[in-house]
Computed example of a mutant assay.
Amino acid sequence: MSQISWLGPHDSFPNPLLTPDPDQSVPGLVAVSERIYPNQLLKAYKLGIFPWYSDEQPVLWWSPDPRMVLKPNDFHCSESLKKSIRHFCQDAQSALLVDADFGAVIRACATSTRKDQDGTWITHEIMDAYASIHEQGYAHSIAIMENGAMIGGLYCVAIGTMVYGESMFSRKPNASKLALAALSAWCIQNHVAMIDCQQETSHLRSMGAKPIPLLDFLQELQASVNQSNIVKPWKFDKQILTHWL
């Protein structure tokens, strides 16, 4: 059985395709570290690896097979969501804010109650790490606002032309779906082929996401992250949602 790598501050990540053992009890786990070291998060994403762990655990690094992805053109915009989009776009008191308050969005994701989930994987260390790469221009947030209050949103990571969805939250029906619809529309406009959704859930399936083999994901990822420039600046407003109408 292969051994899971314990990473120090200067160690390289193992190849996700070579690390997993079919018989191991935690398929998809490729490495462990004491903490998230500087620049380690970006290196992980470029290899298709992401952190997911709880406060009482060391940092666990994952690359599951299959990999859940959303091809932006496959985003399922239901009739009820289209109705919400029309109302949202016509409401003068509603707004969609991009990168306006990244910290508030990730904190909202961390503190939102989720069905069948006890606690959160978004630890203080995770929030600090993503805030750091946000400052470097690699992590972004979308906030859905109503009467000045944040009612939903998401945050993600973007490297080259690869977008990795991280977490969403919703305080009103369809609020997180509005954020994902906006992200999907932006990806279509900027020729982003897929959004990494990491792990399979029924909610993601209902939005159009599907699992693909890890090898296929990694091949698409390498072609995308090797693009020399990020697509266009992350500047858009709620009118991007009219793409779905």
Rank of each mutant, 00 (worst) to 15 (best):
Thr120Glu: 02
Lys177Gln: 14
Ile49Lys: 05
Val69Lys: 06
Gln222Ala: 02
Trp244Glu: 05
Gly8Pro: 05
Thr19Val: 11
Lys177Ile: 13
Ala149Met: 08
Thr111Trp: 04
Lys177Leu: 14
Ala193His: 14
Thr201Gly: 13
Ser132Trp: 10
Met127Phe: 07
Val163Tyr: 15
Ser170Asn: 02
Gln93Ile: 08
Ile4Ser: 04
Met127Cys: 10
Trp121Pro: 03
Gln227Asn: 13
Trp6Asp: 03
Pro64Phe: 01
Asp91Glu: 11
Ser63Asp: 07
Phe236His: 02
Ala179Leu: 06
Ala110Asn: 09
Thr19Gln: 14
Met168Tyr: 07
Thr201Ile: 13
Thr113Ile: 14
Trp6Gly: 05
Asn226Pro: 10
Met194Tyr: 13
Met207Cys: 15
Gln24Val: 09
Ile212Arg: 07
Trp234Ser: 04
Pro72Arg: 09
Ser63Pro: 02
Tyr138Phe: 06
Glu200Lys: 11
Arg86Tyr: 02
Gln219Asn: 10
Ser94Phe: 05
Met150Pro: 11
Leu183Tyr: 12
Ile144Gln: 00
Ala182Pro: 07
Ser78Ile: 11
His134Trp: 12
Gly137Ser: 00
Asp196Ser: 13
Ala104Cys: 14
Leu218Lys: 14
Lys83Asn: 14
Ala143His: 06
Leu241Arg: 01
Ile240Phe: 10
Gln189Trp: 10
Gln57Asp: 13
Ile240Val: 14
Glu200Gln: 15
Trp52Met: 01
Ser25Cys: 09
Arg107His: 14
Cys156Trp: 02
Ser170Pro: 05
Val192Ile: 01
Tyr45Gln: 00
Lys177Ala: 10
Ala158Pro: 12
Leu180Met: 15
Arg107Pro: 07
Ala209Gly: 07
Trp6Lys: 05
Gln90Ser: 15
Leu41Trp: 01
Ala129Trp: 09
His124Gly: 11
Glu146Gln: 15
Gly208Lys: 06
Cys197Ser: 03
Leu218Ser: 04
Gln227Gly: 01
